[in-house]
Design a protein around this nucleic acid. Structure first.
Lengths: 138, 138
DNA sequence: CGTCAAATTGTAATAATTGTATCATTGTCA
DNA sequence: TGACAATGATACAATTATTACAATTTGACG
């Protein structure tokens, strides 16, 4: 039985690429709350079968959604809706959120026996790496 | 009760295979002395249950660690930490462990929409706070 | 103490499921 | 026609599922 949350309507004559239509429909369902964090999406092959398209096309859509951090694709496990990024919340809450995340990271690193210097250096290094691999940012 | 030495954090979104993450986290704890020679690791089935993965995946990680002489798996008995690897190896393992931990933190923070600058500043701030509350360090 | 059965632990093999990577084909449009 | 995007075909890697098995420990029982 096809997933009721997934009854897509593809328009093969719209000129819009199929993978784009899949991306739009999934992200739309996420935005509407029909798909919620943790929900598992159909496998690339199952959805491809349902939509009568090649599974590579579905995989391409999933990859785009994965890069957009909307879903999480996990080889051998499946694909799942990611947690929503924090809604537009007050600057105070935003800061507290980051503070908690950072405190847990620091505490864990120090608990594991790393020095403050090591942690600082690694953070700088990894931020630099991230910047290089993601082009423009901030 | 989960083993306090074993509170792993798997990142199913990192692209790194699960078994690799398990290998890195265990070898990192060994390199840092959190896990000491003779310590018993959770059984493959127990750790698999805790991490919500198949026990074959844990067994694969244990097998790799066993071949690297970091742990000793003994059928019917369990798995135990072997002697600490030589310093040049532990240094490598230590670094890789911290790198993984840091990458997960940075990825999560940036995913939540924080900028690199915000992350950098918060890390500096929290390290300073930690230093003040724990007196001597390093 | 000695013995045996059950439980526990790691090992192994195999198949199925899932996403990934790469290249080939098709089709559209300038 | 030629270039490029979209799609298809194929092979591959990671994980899961299932099952069976061997070594060891544990505990009951005499």
């Amino acid at each position: 039985m096809p997933d009721p949350k997934m009854n897509f309507e593809l328009d093969f004559h719209s000129g819009l690429p199929i993978y784009t239509q899949i991306v739009n429909q999934i992200s739309g369902r996420v935005a509407n709350g029909i798909l919620e964090p943790g929900d598992q999406l159909p496998t690339v092959r199952a959805l491809a079968l349902e939509l009568r398209v090649n599974f590579n096309t579905v995989a391409r859509a999933y990859r785009i959604l994965d890069e957009a951090r909307i879903i999480s694709t996990q080889q051998g496990r499946g694909t799942f809706i990611m947690d929503k990024p924090p809604p537009n919340v007050t600057e105070k809450l935003r800061r507290e959120s980051l503070e908690g995340l950072t405190r847990r990271f620091i505490a864990e690193a120090l608990r594991l026996g790393f020095t403050q210097t090591e942690v600082r250096q690694m953070v700088s290094e990894q931020i630099k790496v991230w910047k290089e691999t993601t082009e423009v940012e901030e």
